[in-house]
Computed example of a mutant assay.
Amino acid sequence: MTAPLVCVLATHHPAGSPRARLVRDLVDRLAHHRVTAVVEDPDQHAHDLSAPTPLADLYVLKSGTPTALSLAGALDAVGARIVNPYPVAAACRDKIVQTRALAAAGVPVPQSWLVTDPIQVAPHLVDGPLIVKDPRGSRGRGLHVLHERAGLADLDQEPWLVMRYHPPEGPDLKLYRIGEEIFCVERPFPARTLREKRGRLLPVTAELEAIVRRCGDAFGIDVYGVDVVRHQGRLWVVDMSAFPGFKGVPEAGRRIADVVVDRLRDDAPQASHARVTAVTP
């Protein structure tokens, strides 16, 4: 019997880099399960788009680059099985689509607006500060916390996600789910050193667990990350990632590999795992 083939779509990092460890551990664990795994950087290879069927039994979409997302969409079009499914990855990559889906699922997200000209939300400054986000930004890029109208006028006219800004009380909480396990990592923002990025593992309260599970239910996935802030005794979800780095999660690569093996054994169509079917390209 031929061993299943899994293709991990991941950005290349030097072998000794902490970012490379997650993928290395994932591949090693898959080998333990007698699954053949190959790692491919979508930005460093030519891809034959004329292939009528997927070349791998399952793909793991770790990279978040535009090329990786486009490749995942092309693979999805010919029936590839992907963790996480392309529609979900695309929805989470667009903070506007993501925010609307989470709000509709009853997740506690701040009041939010989609604007082209940020000056359109100037009247809402009377109720407190706003944070303006690049819908495609990541790792803190494209964030603007504004307290007065003048700051809004300085921004370019292009699509923005504007949220009510709830100043965090203490470090951010990075919540991660892998299968049925949930982890909470406390981390300063912005995290500058490797030690800060790994953060501190905390117990997961019942309230946090309920919020995290509701986020996953909104998209039908069980491998993802959620950013939560605390403000005046309330918890707010301010971002979600379909495949984060899982820094601070013990043996994350092994745990993800176990989920991948379960997907290989699952005969149900992929659509049953993906609840978002139409997204902005």
Rank of each mutant, 00 (worst) to 15 (best):
A3H: 14
L5G: 08
C7K: 13
C7P: 05
P14H: 04
P14W: 05
A15W: 13
V23M: 00
H33A: 12
R34F: 10
A37G: 11
A37S: 13
V38L: 08
V39T: 13
E40G: 01
D41E: 02
D48N: 13
P52S: 00
Y59K: 03
K62W: 00
S63W: 05
T67F: 07
L71G: 03
A74C: 06
G79C: 02
R81C: 01
R81D: 01
Y86K: 07
V88S: 08
K95S: 08
I96T: 01
R100C: 06
L102T: 03
P108M: 13
V109M: 04
P110A: 06
S112L: 11
S112Q: 09
W113S: 00
W113A: 03
L114Q: 15
L114Y: 12
I119G: 12
I119S: 15
Q120K: 15
G128W: 06
P129W: 05
D134C: 00
R136S: 14
G137D: 10
S138P: 05
G140P: 07
R149F: 05
A150H: 12
G151T: 03
D154Y: 04
D154Q: 12
R164M: 11
Y165E: 04
P171A: 09
P171V: 09
D172M: 15
D172Y: 14
R177E: 13
E186H: 05
R187I: 14
A191M: 06
A191T: 00
G199L: 02
G199T: 06
L201F: 02
T205A: 09
F219N: 06
F219T: 05
I221H: 12
D222E: 12
Q232F: 01
W236I: 04
V238N: 03
P244A: 10
V249G: 08
A252Q: 04
G253T: 08
I256N: 04
D258N: 11
D258G: 09
V260Q: 09
R263E: 15
A268W: 01
